[in-house]
Design a protein around this nucleic acid. Structure first.
Lengths: 228, 228
DNA sequence: AGAATGCTTCGGTTAGGATCGAAGTATGAA
DNA sequence: TTCATACTTCGATCCTAACCGAAGCATTCT
């Protein structure tokens, strides 16, 4: 390993296109598997494996084994902040910033994040749940209380099948556009499934938008954030 | 040029040891010549020249021609902030942070920055001067007013010889430890010269400390910040 | 003017590391 | 068990970019 100021090595990690693509993908806050990240970066799994080891050794990523998958996510919020800072510098110097297309507002409002609901509605739901004491957010975990279990069961979530899966029930997921967390994990997926089953929203092909109908959004809020 | 997220290129610029050494040297806020930066990075002038072009093209550095010298400094405060962020990440992950020796407090109080006074006393002096309307700080320049000229002449600064030099009379210099600016340029040098001539301070060999005596510090403040 | 200094451009060398193919381990599914 | 999937390790290739020597401008000093 070359010597030099310590932060150089961090910057060098970010400075490789393949690794930067991975980090960008993870900025959404969702945990991704090694294979997914490889696709995201346009490289083979072997190469990705090497990159991911380096990123983890450099303290930029956290890894969680889950069955035969390895889920990666940004190590902490500070990593995201530094990446944002770099993006800010890049934006200043004539590099085109991520252009805000016309569908951006919809993406901000509600979108699919892996398999759960992100965007303003997702954040609002988690805010409500923590305020009510249904969920408790700690440093790097999200736990459900008895009251929470009762509540979600009462609105039709099937905890029996959720518990069979080895997937964590609750996980918090950092929402980049809002810099806030929303609900992920098995419960997060179950909620999004409900949204589609009830016909509250549709999913336009080719996008990550969750297009709520007017009445669907009302029903969603009445169900998952009743006292708001 | 490789493609990839725009910020990748910025990170790659920082991720080279030689360039990182240059940036580290510039974190002190002082403008350095290409040759000085080459020495700082331990490379030849030719190589340094190439690096500096890239850093400037990437928007990380600003360049100012001055006679046959080329002075480089960080492009703006945001660059410094991003570098600090990277250093913070590095520090978290077991990399040793810049050790704070016992002489650190003295360095913070008053030190030589190239040829002028930096540290708390330097910052305080510029604060006073701008508050009194002696100096006017703009985006990337520092101008002296008539009142300022009168004031500094009244305390014994010789403007005749200063004007003969082609060196800019006033320059603001970013102070890293304080994230504030202090006075550089010909006037800044003249002030520091005065400090040593009057015997207000000595300069311990091998360090950048400006060691004021108790009475010297009083005299300095009485002279350059009389109403504080 | 000539000499010296500061910096840049050009050309050729070299080393680091990103990449992939092939083969090896681990976990889950049938 | 056998097969499939997810990921890692090993080995070899190849390409980028850092680097320096030499030579060429530009500025300043004498």
């Amino acid at each position: 390993m070359k010597d030099g100021p310590d932060f150089t090595q961090i910057a060098a990690l970010i400075g490789d296109p393949a690794r930067a693509n991975m980090l960008t993908a993870l900025m959404s806050g969702m945990a991704l598997t090694a294979t997914e990240l490889a696709q995201e970066a346009g490289i083979t799994a072997q190469t990705a494996s090497g990159h991911l080891s380096k990123l983890e050794a450099g303290g930029l990523l956290r890894q969680r084994k889950q069955g035969r998958h390895r889920y990666f996510s940004l190590a902490d919020h500070d990593v995201g902040l530094v990446l944002e800072g770099l993006m800010g510098l890049a934006a200043k110097n004539g590099f085109l910033r991520t252009r805000t297309g016309p569908k951006d507002p919809e993406l901000r409002q509600a979108r699919v994040c892996y398999d759960h609901l992100a965007g303003a509605l997702g954040v609002q739901m988690l805010d409500y749940a923590t305020a009510q004491g249904f969920l408790i957010e700690t440093e790097d975990a999200l736990d459900i209380t008895q009251a929470g279990t009762d509540f979600y069961q009462s609105v039709g979530i099937d905890f029996q099948s959720l518990k069979k899966s080895k997937r964590p029930l609750c996980k918090s997921c950092l929402d980049w556009s809002m810099r806030r967390t929303h609900l992920a994990g098995g419960l997060g997926k179950a909620v999004l499934d409900t949204v589609f089953e009830k016909g509250w929203a549709t999913r336009p092909a080719g996008t990550r938008i969750v297009a709520f109908t007017k009445s669907g959004e009302m029903a969603f809020l009445r169900t998952f954030c009743p006292e708001t």
